[in-house]
Amino acid sequence: MTPLQHEYLLALFGAYTGLFIIMFGFMYRMLQKSRKLDHDVKLLKEEWIGQPEVTVEPGDANSAVMPTVRGQGMQDA
């Protein structure tokens, strides 16, 4: 094997090693992301369950006056 070939092989080895390290880095990121998503979903679920059930009385207010209250004028809610 000539020195040039040896360098070529070393370069290829380095390149592929880098490729796989990057690939594993991505996998690690994916795992972190899924862990974070699981965590967020769990927190949101707890918050959702813990919330007191508030029934909003459908008052007489016009939706233009109180846009956040479910009124008679609100059709698209």
Partner: peptide, 12 residues
Amino acid sequence: VRMRLMRAEMGV
């Protein structure tokens, strides 16, 4: 790993 991430996305 990928299926785990997809399952987490499905959870959302």
